[in-house]
């Protein structure tokens, strides 16, 4: 465990917990401005969280421990990813866990916990949301694995830190078919996984279209705050991974204060820009009909597979 890894392990989770609600706020603000509204301000999600946290803990009658534990599991898994994955520093505090498969498994675990909670409520919406989420997840996980695997082939390691630093060493790789195909595939699955348009609409409570919101419909008070925080964190984590896998510049490779500062700044800027782009894109697209979603995901899976194939034959 290197000093750089330890520093990263401390700085990254703090940055992500503090920053992710701001990211969500930023995206909402961008959407609002593009749609001609004034918007609630970038800090609004934090104010919402504060309000929710002060409320009384209420759980629906008939729900079990699964329902109560799910928000914690969700936050915990995302937090672990925030600690180990290379966001600000290339080294990891817990190097073996910075593995591609471990990170994807952690993220999937959170999603599964939430889906189980949705089922646990026994309401129609919860079950519907959970089943939809599982449909999407079944296609998202393999794509995620295959797409990042394509990047790891030429590095010869599935360690995310190693992938990032090898891209730093050889920047020309970014403009290769492997990277481009994998990037498109990753962007698509990230959109699906974080419940953004056109797969899911984060700001709707229409029964026909909800996926993520349907699962968390029964949460209230501090539990809801945790779920909201966790989904914001997942969004930041995914965008951060996307940014660093394909555009790793700025990430701290040494433990000097300047390098760290640059690393933090670079991450904030990269994730911010991606978030703004995503929000701006959402203004222009409509939600996809649910049965078209597998099509989109099958397409991204194909792209990911092509990326792997290309990484083998276009060496």
């Amino acid at each position: 465990m290197s000093a750089l890894g330890v520093v990263g392990g401390v700085v990254q989770p703090v940055l992500i917990v503090a920053g992710s609600p701001l990211l969500v706020g930023l995206m909402r603000q961008v959407r609002a401005r593009l749609e001609g509204r004034a918007g609630a301000g970038v800090a609004q999600p934090w104010r919402d969280l504060r309000k929710l946290m002060r409320k009384e803990q209420i759980t629906p009658r008939g729900t079990s421990e699964v329902f109560r534990l799910a928000p914690l599991v969700l936050v915990a898994t995302t937090l672990v990813v925030a600690v180990v994955a290379p966001f600000v520093t290339t080294d990891s505090a817990l190097d073996p866990a910075a593995d591609l498969f471990a990170v994807v498994a952690l993220l999937a675990l959170g999603a599964v916990a939430l889906a189980l909670a949705g089922l646990d409520t026994g309401t129609a919406f919860g079950g519907m949301g959970a089943s939809r989420e599982m449909t999407i997840l079944a296609l998202v996980e393999p794509t995620l694995l295959v797409a990042i695997f394509a990047l790891s082939v030429r590095v010869g390691s599935t360690n995310l830190g190693a992938i990032v630093s090898s891209t730093l060493d050889d920047p020309a790789r970014v403009i290769s078919p492997v990277s481009l195909l994998a990037a498109v595939a990753l962007i698509l699955v990230i959109i699906a996984e974080t419940g953004r348009l056109p797969v899911d609409n984060p700001s709707t409570h229409l029964e026909l279209t909800m996926v993520h919101e349907a699962m968390v419909l029964e949460y209230a008070g501090p539990d809801l705050a945790l779920v909201e925080l966790a989904s914001a964190m997942r969004l930041s984590v995914f965008l951060g991974l996307l940014a660093n896998l394909f555009l790793p510049w700025g990430i701290a490779a040494t433990a000097t204060p300047v390098a760290l500062l640059v690393g933090i700044l670079a991450l904030v800027v990269k994730v911010g820009v991606l978030g703004v782009l995503l929000a701006a894109g959402e203004v222009f697209v409509a939600k996809l009909r649910l049965f078209r979603v597998p099509e989109l995901l099958a397409g991204s899976f194909l792209l990911a597979l092509l990326a792997v194939a290309a990484s083998f034959f276009l060496v």
């Binding site: 290769s176 492997v178 195909l181 498109v184 397409g299 276009l314």
Partner: peptide, 12 residues
């Protein structure tokens, strides 16, 4: 390879 990738992507 970039051109090849574009070829493949457009086909898909």
């Amino acid at each position: 390879y970039l051109a090849c990738g574009a070829l493949l992507l457009t086909a898909v």
